[in-house]
């Protein structure tokens, strides 16, 4: 069983210090970039050492998940907003015109050493942006999906994760869910990659089993928030099990992760199963994230040995 990361990664204490020094104009942008580069190198190395096949760049230089997409035509940086029920914030994209893709928004910030690209999903984007231009959010979903499709085609990576925390934090009604499924189809149209729709910060029950209709290879479920007993079997997709809690500093025991993964597999009978953190590990300090990754990797080996 494989393990992988699902989002932003914490900054090392050295990078924290570098950001602070840069903010106070005591070091140059080049020196800050060097510090980012060191963190990135360490993160890539860590994932490889732990045997992960899907390698992320930890969005170390993104600002937040949505920030690069504020560079799409028709969008500008809006107001500072709370990131779900966390003590972190993002700059809401303010949509002031028709959303269009003119050039890559991830150019220059995406590491060539990463092979998995994580992007916000259309439903989540439509809920988290400010909308003085569009009259309804369905239109935003589709125009954003089209722009996303151009961006994904531009990068040609083998693994793509579409992050949709809002699907489980603020579940859509049936009609919007259907449109969101169409929007995801639009976003990945013609893309040759393994695709994952990752949900987090909420239980999946409200959109289960309809969530299986998304035209992706894997669905990610936050099992810190989801009670597996509330789900029926017949998970006719690959399943990414969020079993490591990115919102606590307690380190999970690999044996416990392995046992939970086995129970989930027995109960839901997915096509294939991966294990991962339930959300972005940048919600905790770097040393905590490293230990959690080590637990995840050990759990992956235990499951492999039992299989």
């Amino acid at each position: 069983m494989q393990a992988f990361l699902t989002g932003a990664y914490p900054h090392s204490e050295e990078l924290v210090a570098a950001h602070r020094e840069h903010a106070r104009k005591r070091i140059t942008k080049e020196e800050l970039n060097k510090a980012v580069g060191k963190d990135l190198e360490a993160l890539i190395r860590l994932q490889k050492v732990e045997g992960f096949k899907q390698i992320v760049d930890g969005q170390l230089d993104w600002g937040d998940l949505l920030r690069p997409f504020s560079k799409l035509y028709g969008i500008e940086k809006g107001s500072l907003t709370r990131w779900y029920n966390n003590n972190t914030f993002y700059w809401a994209p303010r949509v002031t015109g028709k959303i269009e893709w003119k050039d890559s928004v991830l150019k220059g910030i995406l590491s060539p050493n990463a092979n998995k690209l994580i992007v916000p999903g259309p439903y989540t984007f439509s809920l988290l942006c400010e909308t003085p231009f569009y009259r309804n959010r369905d239109e935003i979903m589709f125009d954003f999906a089209k722009a996303l499709n151009s961006e994904l085609k531009h990068h040609k990576v083998p693994y793509i994760q579409i992050s949709e925390p809002s699907l489980v934090f603020s579940p859509p009604d049936e009609n919007t869910l259907e449109k969101s499924i169409d929007a995801v189809a639009e976003a990945i149209k013609g893309i040759k990659a393994q695709t994952l729709l990752q949900t987090y910060f909420g239980p999946i029950e409200a959109i289960y089993p309809a969530v299986l209709e998304y035209p992706v290879d894997f669905i990610g479920v936050d099992f810190i928030e989801t009670d597996v007993n509330a789900l029926d079997s017949g998970f006719a997709k690959g399943l990414a099990c969020g079993l490591v809690n990115s919102r606590t500093s307690s380190i999970e025991r690999p044996e416990d992760i392995a046992e939970q993964a086995n129970n989930i597999e027995e109960k839901l009978e997915p096509n294939e199963i991966f294990i991962c953190p339930n959300a972005d590990l940048d919600l905790r300090p770097g040393w905590v994230a490293e230990k959690k990754i080590a637990s995840l990797a050990s759990a992956s080996k235990i499951i492999g040995e039992l299989a």
Partner: peptide, 17 residues
């Protein structure tokens, strides 16, 4: 205290357990 967590941009706080 367990370490720094980013709040946004270059702002961090030292989280305690």
């Amino acid at each position: 205290f367990v370490g720094h967590v980013r709040s946004f941009d270059d702002k961090y706080y030292n989280i305690a357990s």
